[in-house]
Design a binder for these strands. Structure first.
Lengths: 205, 205
DNA sequence: ACCGTAACTGAACGGTCGTGCAATTGACAG
DNA sequence: CTGTCAATTGCACGACCGTTCAGTTACGGT
């Protein structure tokens, strides 16, 4: 046998990426072999090299693709900068949680497999990740300047908030105690608390 | 050559664990070979099997040891249950951050390498991790009952807080912008916000 | 001075790894 | 119906994997 019937490069390419994501998310990059990925696709190991120059690129492309698409999606969902920070933060939290719940595998890979990237690939991914962090940080500092938020250290609050929000994707399961929307709503509340959003209904007794 | 001069089983055992922790934290369990660990110790690969039955146990023992010691340490630092929840939470946050900063490698391994555990080992580690989560959850629910904290969902707040606190160990570096103590203080503040600790100085205008 | 045994070597086992490549087959245009 | 090229196989390469074990050496007690 050689060429498969009904075969098309684009279809196989997509299957390779799918299989790689699924397997790497489950077993970890280093623990997954090219032969395993190939078996999942229904192809011999050698055929994978039509779609990736090597194993490392497979990982890198997944991560970069994920982060680029993440930043891109936010660009399209984000309110204009002149919007009040409170609203921008709420929008961001909902966006982040929805996005991360729907793409749990890619998210998982993107922060679990950083150390399996070669140095230059690592740098590029880090740069993208920092861009995303800056999105939050900018909202927080803007909110402080507006007088809408009150906290002492926007950088630290950013780190805490990122960790808190991204943490959701490590435990969220479909059909769990709460639907995704309800989780997002509660996390908006917690994000407001961290940011020190001026309480509206919270009056001292 | 066979036995090394000045060799002692206990010393080598410690070196093996040290090397394993360092290498696994840096490259990941699956990416580290027994020969690499052996080289780091200054010994042949076969010699490792005097100290561990297999590679899997090496990982499992590191993780279990870490979690058991973590729970144990908290047992000794924790205030009595009748202490006000605000104080217990502050104590917990400081303990958690200090502990995690000082043992960043073991912490990292213990939540990065979960999927490389065989099923029964995984169950035991999960049980320990849940025990630790319950520490926070108990403090939060006690605080709500006391009227010291105000939040809608203690379980979700627990998850958020764990993620927020443990996140520190992924970015903390000695000699960074803030010393560990200052970081802990700021995180105590953020933990209070998440918990909805009754504001003392925060009075509505 | 000698011995038992703890500590370790060095080689080997069967297996898997990532990757390269000549040969082969199917899709499709003309 | 033919020719071209995209898609894929099947095998090979050298390297490395976790683990075992017979043999060798140094330590500690007597």
């Amino acid at each position: 046998m050689a060429r498969k019937s009904g075969s098309s490069g684009e279809k196989t390419r997509a299957m390779v990426e799918d299989a790689a994501i699924r397997l790497i998310a489950r077993y970890g990059f280093a623990a997954v072999s090219m032969r395993q990925i190939a078996r999942e696709v229904g192809v011999q190991a050698g055929a994978l090299y039509l779609y990736t120059p090597d194993k490392q690129s497979l990982l890198f492309d997944i991560m970069r693709g994920h982060l680029v698409h993440l930043l891109d999606s936010w660009q399209q969902h984000s309110p204009p900068v002149e919007t009040p920070a409170v609203i921008r933060l709420e929008r961001f939290v909902r966006f982040h949680i929805d996005y991360h719940i729907m793409r749990a595998e890619k998210v998982f890979i993107s922060y679990m497999e950083l150390r399996n990237l070669e140095p230059e690939n690592f740098s590029e991914i880090e740069r993208l990740r920092r861009d995303y962090e800056h999105v939050i940080e900018e909202i927080l500092t803007a909110g402080v300047a507006e007088g809408a938020f009150e906290h002492t250290d926007s950088r630290l609050t950013t780190m805490a908030m990122i960790a808190m929000l991204t943490g959701v994707s490590t435990w969220y399961r479909d059909g769990g105690r709460l639907p995704a929307g309800a989780i997002a709503t509660r996390y908006v509340d917690m994000a407001f608390r961290l940011a020190g959003a001026e309480p509206l209904a919270e009056v001292a007794e």
